[in-house]
Amino acid sequence: MNKQHNNRIGIKAWLNPWRYGIERFAYWLMRITGVGLLVYFIMHIYETSSILDGKEIWNKMLDLTQTPEGHLILVLVIGMSTFHTINGIRIMLGHGGIGVGKASRPDYPYAPKSQNMKNKLCIYASIGLAALAMLYSVEVMFGE
């Protein structure tokens, strides 16, 4: 069966977060931040392991990472982990059936109750708090 016949959207469906509302956007951010954090985590372990090679190498690594570019990456990482954590808690509660509404006889125009204000506000809050955390970390790392 060739691709065209099969007609799955493929990776394009993951890369386009602008359809189907904020919940789909949160799904997309969750993935991106998850992978981003994993990449940072691996690099972070490599970076800090330089301590085994003594003070000189450690300081060399600091020269490499404690730069404006390095700090920018850290700011991003802080934003990513804030969003990923808060949205992660929302998702875990949702997966446990908490805050996804109550089943009832559907009524036109059928607004889905799982896509409720609580969830939307939580998504906005996790984006907002991520932004605040990033501002604060800018203050800490670029301040003075």
Binding site: R19, Y20, G21, Y27, Y110, P112
Partner: peptide, 11 residues
Amino acid sequence: HFAGSCSKVCP
């Protein structure tokens, strides 16, 4: 992953 797109389009 609770992206909810299914619910958005269900008629």
